[in-house]
Design a protein around this nucleic acid. Sequence first.
RNA 1: GCCCCGGUAGUGUAGUGGCCUAUCAUACGGGCCUGUCGAGCCCGUGACUCGGGUCCAAAUCCCGGCCGGGGCGCCA
Length: 428
Amino acid sequence: MPITVSELKNKGEGEEILLNGWLQEIRNLKKISFLVLRDHTGTIQITAKPDLTENYDSISQITRETVLSVHGNLTRKTQSKSGIEILAKSVKVLNEAKSPLPLGIIDPVGADIETRLTNRFLDLRKPEVALIFRTESELLWGMREFFHDSGFVEVHTPKIVAAATEGGADLFQVQYFEKQAFLNQSPQLYKEILISAGLNRVFEVGPAFRAEKHNTPRHLNEFTSIDIEMGFADHNDAMHMLQEGVKSGIRHLVSHAPVSTAPPSAKIQIPEGNFPRITYRECIKKLESKGEKVKFGEDFTPEQLKLIGSEFTSFYFITEWPSSLRAFYTQPKPGDEVVSNSFDLQYREYEITSGAQRVHDPLLLEERLKSKGLNPEDFSFYLNAFRYGMPPHAGWGLGLERLVLIILNLQNIREATLFPRDRTRITP
RNA sequence: GCCCCGGUAGUGUAGUGGCCUAUCAUACGGGCCUGUCGAGCCCGUGACUCGGGUCCAAAUCCCGGCCGGGGCGCCA
C-alpha cells in the first residue's frame, strides 16, 4: 500500500516503503542519484545507487515533474539534511512530464501572474500556492459550521435570473432559449423571498457575477459570495453574526492549520471581542481633520479608506451609510432617514462585506424602487413575497476571496482564486 | 466608461538609434564527480509580440492590431 510523505515519520528503520508523487528535482552524480519526490503532504529524498536500484542508468533521464512510484526502504542513517531518506529498489515512471516546464516549481526565478495563471496546474504544485486554497477551505468550513450551529439553513438560489438584483446595469446577459436572462450579481432577492417563506435563517455560498470592466488587484468578474439573511432581526443582529462568523472561521483555520512546514496560518491573529464601529458621518469628520474634503452622500475613495483604515488594527464596521448610496432594499434609519441601518465590514482599505437591515414594508419597498429609477413591475416576483407576511429581516454578503486576501496578506485577488475571471481572462 | 504603463530565449531580466554577432540568472542538453541537498566546475542550445512607417542604420523612434499589468469610477 502506498503511503504519503507525511506518514513516513511513523515508519521504522529499514521498513519497506511505497510512495507516489512528482519528481521535484534530481541531482545526478556518476554513481549515485538523489531524487526529491513531492506529494500533497511534503517532500522526501530518494537515493538511487547502481548496486541497489533497478535500471539505475535510466534514472538520470527522468524529467522534472514526472509522476513516479518509488519502492524502497526507509533509513535514518543518512547524511541527508532532513535526517530521513528512501533507498530506492525501483523507480517506476507512471507518467512522464514534458521538458522544459512552462513554469518552474522550485526555480529561483519568479514568474508573472499571467504565466502562473495560464499554467495554473503547475503553479498550484507549489506548496505555498496550494496553501492559499487549503486555507480558504478551512476558513469556509469554520464559517459553515458556525452558521449551521446558529440555526441557519444552507440554500442554493438560481444564478440565471430575469431581473437585475439591485437594478444596476453591469450584468452578464444570457440567452435563455427565447428569453433574455442574466447571471445573478447577488442572491439578495432570493434570500429575502426565503425569509418570507419562513426558513428564518438562511446562508448560501455561491458564485456572483459582475460585468464591470474594472481591472484592479481587488476585483473579479466572478467571485464567491457568502450570504446570510435572518428573519426577525435587524442590522445589529446581522453585524453580530458576521463578527462571530468571521471569528469562528479564522479560529477553525488556525486550529486546523493546513499541512505544511511553515504555515502562514501560524501567524494569523484570531480577532478578539467586538469589532469597532464607526459611522459614516464620523468617518467624514475624521477625514476632514486630516485635510480631506468629503461631501455627505459621496462614497469614500480608496485613498480615504486607507486613511480611515489606518486607525484600526483589524476588522471594523462603517455604519449608517447615506440611504442614497445603498441599494433600494436598505432600511432607512428611523428618525434619521437620510442614513440607513446599513454597514460595511472593513479591513484596512478593503471592503469585505456589505449588509443592512432590509425594508420589509412592501409600500416603502415600491417607493424605494421608484426613487432609484427602477420599475416595480420588473420586481413583481420579489414584491409578492412582501405582500403576504414578510418578517423584519437583515443580512449581508461577504466576498470570500477578499477575506482570504486580507487574512494571508496577498497582493492580488487573483492569487486567492483558482481560476480567476477578470476583465480579459476566461481560460483556463 | 475614462486614464497610465508594459510585451526581449522555457522562465525571469539587462539593454533609450550604430559599441547588439543582444546581458545576466535560472531552466534545458552534454561532460567531470559515491553523499548531493540553492550541489559545484567546464562546454553547448535557446529570444527582440505582430503589421506598417521614419532613417544610411530600429530591440530602441512613430502609427495601428493583439496580449498583459495598474489607477479612477463601481463594487464583495
